[in-house]
């Protein structure tokens, strides 16, 4: 069954049982498997509690996301972003077994061949800084997404400072 979405977006699950299929969408959309195939029905908060209360109570905390920006043309964070690094450490301190993911991004200028290594380099720069500040190396990974995930959607080839960034997930 589908659980109500935190952000209220439209999503779905397709349930396939042999040749029969049911598409679930919307909060509490659910299907029971029967000999006649999946039977769709609308579940409820109460049923979710009974069936999935224990599973949901064991759900890990969602990753917290932070975004850091660089001073134009420099391998240095903006003053605002330096402050955010403090929040990253505060979040890490809150979690029982924290692990950190650092994802570098570029703007839409240049090819993947140029931007993929550049974004990785940006992420590694931050990873190194976080390790120097006390995060165990085995608990932090870095990679780059190049120009595949623009924060501000632009045409290809357009420079944009908000796209040159590093996103950190603390999990």
């Amino acid at each position: 069954m589908l659980l109500p979405e935190k952000d209220g977006k439209d999503t779905a699950v397709v349930v396939k049982q042999r040749d029969a299929e049911a598409t679930l969408s919307g909060p509490y959309a659910a299907a029971k498997l029967t000999t006649a195939g999946p039977q769709a029905y609308r579940s409820s908060e109460d049923e979710v509690k009974v069936l999935f209360g224990a599973a949901m109570a064991a759900r890990p905390e969602r990753p917290t996301e932070f975004t850091l920006y660089f001073i134009e043309g420099k391998n240095e964070l903006t003053d605002e972003s330096k402050q955010i690094v403090k929040d990253v450490f505060a979040e890490i301190a809150k979690r029982p077994v924290p692990d950190v993911v650092v994802i570098g991004h570029t703007d839409a200028v240049g090819t993947h061949q140029v931007n993929d290594p550049l974004s990785k380099q940006r992420a590694e720069f931050i990873r190194t800084g976080l390790i120097e500040s006390g995060i165990a190396p085995e608990n932090i990974i870095a990679f780059g997404r190049g120009k595949r995930e623009l924060f501000v959607l632009t045409e290809d080839g357009v420079a944009h400072p908000r796209n040159r960034r590093v996103v950190i997930f603390v999990r």
Partner: peptide, 10 residues
Amino acid sequence: ILGVRGTEFA
């Protein structure tokens, strides 16, 4: 088999 389209489910 459940095919996932990006969602919260159980």
